[in-house]
Nucleic acid binder design. Structure first.
Lengths: 342, 342
DNA sequence: GTGAAAGCGCTAACAT
DNA sequence: ATGTTAGCGCTTTCAC
């Protein structure tokens, strides 16, 4: 009644266990006739090698961890989906870890990861500092997505957020906006810092006036953006365009504009940032950036798989470009979209 | 340089491997002094038992699979988060499988699950038929979330969707609506069929006129609902209230109303169904049901853990009630909310 | 209270 | 071409 082992197959086929193993893993090395008998026995018993035993022998479990701040976030989920698919295609399982945006939790995961049945780990953007992944990258194949760490220490996949933010600024500026504000979450990540740098750089290069209170850091939530937008609308010299740090946050920002009796884009232009699903159904549909979430997950998985095969090669950083998606939330010069071909 | 084993610890502590194992797993059975020496050696080497070896011995891997149609869906993600947290709290890992809403894929997962390093599996709602989980429930602890299968075959966690739909109907009726339509995805799941049954039952009991074309099945997407709403608005005797199958779909439906030059709730009342995050920021904020996603994931995990401990107990089905969340998308009789206490 | 040794299921080196 | 056997790292009898 219990699961058949290689011994059972050997007995039924009247060969040694070694032959069974070979018939399965190295078919050429066993005589055609023997192989046939073995495979029949395998079939009859419904035998499948025990992955745990294989793992013990080979020291490979064929599983990869993915650590996300919050699987509930559409962006993270999409990255996870990309990683999962790539891993599954290569016979690897995906072990999920949700850190609930808690840095301590991530540190904890780093510790237990070494005593967990995984061959590698993908760390997806957290809003805090980067956990101590360098220590574990000796034992595990590690890849970071949108984290910050010195280039050559560990494999990385990054989105070019600085350029992305400038793309949005450029778009708004072309539409005639001179007073562009930026709503973001807490600026603890260098990713956010890169966005802010991109913002400042653009303001300067375009010869616009930089105003400190046009950059607002609240929470990484719809409500955070709601509050931030309220604040912005209350300022004296209020902006005519606002870039919101994520699409989800933008939903809150749009809501704040409405509650103030104003309209988007007539009174104020609004953009999102990461092309979260649903943006085309917002009111109004949201101009945003095409954030290659799925692809980033996929590439991270591929980097891990590659490192598992070739542990020695130098660490790589891949930086992906962001493209603009023009919808109605900034007004109607849709023709601009065509100019953004790189 | 490589990971220390129990042998290394034994050598350093000058005891046998058995003693090391006992000092760690069964401290009382070893003399205080010996134990101290062993633990010091463990500490010095930074030893941690290899989970793979433990798994081979114990025939338990301490991992549970969770199979979702689409991790990108906020509802599924929330369930996954609930399951993950419960599992993590009990020292179990969560192995994620994404089926991309593909029934064949689910069948495939059922097959490989037995040869995968997991002790159990949670199957979350798919929009197709239920995969053949009965076969595997001998080898694995299995729990279904919002799937349909005879009660006593396997552990289940369900939402009372029939009652939920009636709650929405009742709410709309109280607000004065007699022409209530229902937009759903393809009615392949019995979950959907239960909703439809709830709808019909209410219409009958309330003495309203049942109209076949007030039930529209499209796709389970924002666009599906967009199209369905367009169709509804084009009918002759058009409804004054519409219940949409999911909140995400409702976003599409709201968009369709706007595109037709009408307003919610002035011209037509709209509800969602599953309390997806963001609904309070829709335009207008969406009346919907509190769907206990997190809790369902948690309960499913708990059921699995429980079955692993007590394999013999009878299979259980847990059905959770749905509560209404009243926002602005159906008009302003907010006082109704208070009447819904069960 | 502790040690020696068997064995979980598999693969690979060695022997025939 | 096939069989025998050691060993992956651990836990758990069974002896002492």
């Amino acid at each position: 009644m219990k699961r058949p082992t290689i011994k059972d197959v050997a007995k039924l086929a009247k060969v040694s266990v070694a032959t069974v193993s070979r018939a399965l893993n190295d078919p050429e090395t066993v005589k055609e006739e023997t192989r046939k008998i073995v495979l029949e026995a395998v079939d009859e018993l419904g035998y499948d090698p025990d992955p745990v035993a294989q793992a013990l022998r080979s020291n490979k479990v064929k599983s990869i961890a993915i650590i996300v701040p919050n699987i509930t976030n559409a962006i993270m989920a999409e990255m996870t989906r990309g990683a999962h698919e790539e891993l599954a295609d290569n016979g690897y399982n995906t072990v999920l870890f949700n850190s609930d945006d808690d840095f301590q939790q991530e540190v904890h995961y780093c510790q237990i990861l070494q005593n967990t049945m995984v061959d590698g780990a993908i760390f997806v953007t957290g809003s805090g500092e980067t956990p101590p992944v360098e220590n574990i990258s000796n034992d595990l194949a590690v890849c970071l997505i949108n984290r910050e760490i010195e280039d050559d220490k560990v494999d990385q996949v990054l989105a070019d957020e600085k350029e992305g933010l400038q793309l949005l600024c450029y778009h708004l500026h072309k539409l005639g906006h001179d007073k562009i504000a930026f709503i973001t979450g807490l600026a603890t990540t260098t990713a956010t810092q890169r966005k802010i740098a991109g913002y400042k750089e653009f303001i300067e290069e375009a010869g616009l006036k930089f105003k400190e209170n046009y950059i607002i850091s609240g929470h990484w939530t719809m409500n955070g953006a709601y509050m931030a937008m309220k604040e912005l609308l209350g300022t004296e010299d209020k902006p005519t365009a606002v870039i919101v740090g994520t699409d989800t946050m933008a939903l809150g920002a749009l809501s704040a504009v409405r509650d103030n009796g104003l309209s988007v884009p007539e009174d104020i232009a609004v953009t999102g940032f990461d092309n979260a699903p649903g943006g085309e159904y917002y009111h109004p549909p949201l101009t945003t950036l095409k954030y290659p979430n799925y692809e980033m997950g996929q590439l991270a998985a591929r980097a891990i798989l590659n490192r598992l095969k070739n542990p020695q090669i130098a660490k790589k950083s891949i930086k992906l470009p962001l493209d603009i998606t023009v919808r109605k939330s900034c007004g109607f010069r849709l023709d601009f979209a065509g100019k953004n071909n790189r």
